[in-house]
Design a protein around this nucleic acid. Structure first.
Lengths: 107, 107
DNA sequence: TTTATATATTGCAATATTACGATAATAAAA
DNA sequence: TTTTATTATCGTAATATTGCAATATATAAA
């Protein structure tokens, strides 16, 4: 079918899966690393940095924005994308609590 | 195209993306939570627990095994799947180091 | 050996994702 | 206003993922 049966899982499970899905692409990992490595605001230096076309980068940025992992500040005709630190930490905590709760070993 | 351009990213970025991809599905999250919630070894109680067909569960288990997140011990005609605690912690550490390194805020 | 049970594999249909060219939208500069 | 630069959206092709029925495999029990 190709469609995930989200109805049979709880909202926490679906939320975790969505977060992991946003992070499940090397271009988006690279974008996050690049954004965070710049001291000043950056824009579509990202397009030059990562080797992908501008529409592709734009789409990846949209997905990162969809879970508020980054935020964009308009600066003239440029847009400055930054890590949303609050959400960043919130997600890190969420993932850690998943990892901490899920660790009983039986074999 | 549909194909991720892994060649243009480094191995660390691709590795992270692969780990996130394995976790990016609510069925696999639910399987991990269920496995870890059982004190004794469990097998295809997973099929009964999660509302998906046996071949589907088998495929998800295969993907979880592909990054050694779980291991299966053969027990007669049943197979006992368990969290691989060492790998589990290794991955948690890897993700935390990603989150810790990537956090500069500029806006 | 035959039967029953548990798990894996194959093949396929439906949907999702990735990437990009073409184009639209926006805003500064000329 | 026209031009230029920057970013977003649309449409589409290629590939990946999800899920399941059918079937294969493996092992224990009869």
């Amino acid at each position: 079918m190709g469609i995930t049966k989200t109805q049979i899982f709880n909202s926490r499970q679906n939320e975790l899966a969505i977060i992991f899905k946003v992070l499940a692409n090397p271009a988006r990992i690279a974008i996050l690393q690049y954004i965070s490595g710049q001291k000043a605001c950056i824009c579509n230096d990202i397009v030059d940095e990562i080797g992908l076309a501008q529409p592709t980068i734009s789409q990846h940025l949209k997905e990162l924005k969809s879970i508020d992992l980054i935020k964009g500040a308009i600066d003239g005709k440029k847009i400055c994308y930054c890590i949303n630190l609050e959400k960043w930490k919130e997600i890190q905590d969420l993932l850690n609590s998943f990892f901490d709760k899920t660790k009983f070993n039986c074999c």
